[in-house]
Amino acid sequence: MKNRRWIQIGFFLFIAAIAVNHGLTEAGGGIAWLSNASLHAICPFGGVVTLYTYITDGAMIKKIHESSLVLMGLVLFLSVLVGPAFCGWVCPLGSIQEWVGKIGRKIFGKRYNRLIPKKADRLLGLLRYGVLAWVLIVTALSFDLVFSTVDPYYALFQFWTGEVAISAIIILLAVLGLSLIVERPWCRYACPYGAFLGITNKFRIFTIRRNAKTCVDCKQCDSVCPMGIEVSTSGKVRDLRCISCMECTSEAACPIPETVQLLGGIKDEA
């Protein structure tokens, strides 16, 4: 199994275990050696939404703690280095969409991921910046974690507690359902954190690069990209949607050695 699959499974189980342990601890039990932090405390996006309040008032919004700011900083550092690898390697919501997508590929075959026209796909991709702006504004104005009422990530790990807003559960089910026809629909069209991290694609140090001299234009890189990026027409992939999953590289889908690679350094950028 590829490195990425192991990491995704590992983080999914790790977050699920912490979420369950949090519930058990509140009920008076729990596993002592495992973190019992709330899901909000270990979500780096909490750091983004509370940043304004933290800077202006020196206080966190309700339910968000300093750990979210730490994680936000670490994920941002990782993203500046190699792009939004958090999305492609860590985020459990992204992982589960991919796993459901594998079923979709089996059902729809070659029609999978092609039911939404390319142009519409690109335009819909801008929606997530609208979501990001909405989340930041309403959070700053309300001092409350408004996003949790529609957050499918929260619903994914808390649905069994009865504490999740019905709207969040509906969105989670819609996302999982849509994953059967398009890969990572939440990440592509709605995720505000993906939108935020995606900005680092414009200046990240290590970038996916295609060597046009050796490329045979087979478009394998395009067909495997979970975010619908046309790697085959790019030199350097600076697309805001890239999640650094490495599926397009010569190590994975690209059949020609050293043609699509993750390269960094000033020399490579020249």
Binding site: N3, I7, L74, F77, V82, A85, M246, L263
Partner: peptide
């Protein structure tokens, strides 16, 4: 400088 999947996996976990 080139990074492969293994490098990313290590970076994610270590960072």
């Amino acid at each position: 400088m080139k990074l492969n999947q293994k490098s990313i996996a290590i970076l994610v976990v270590v960072i």
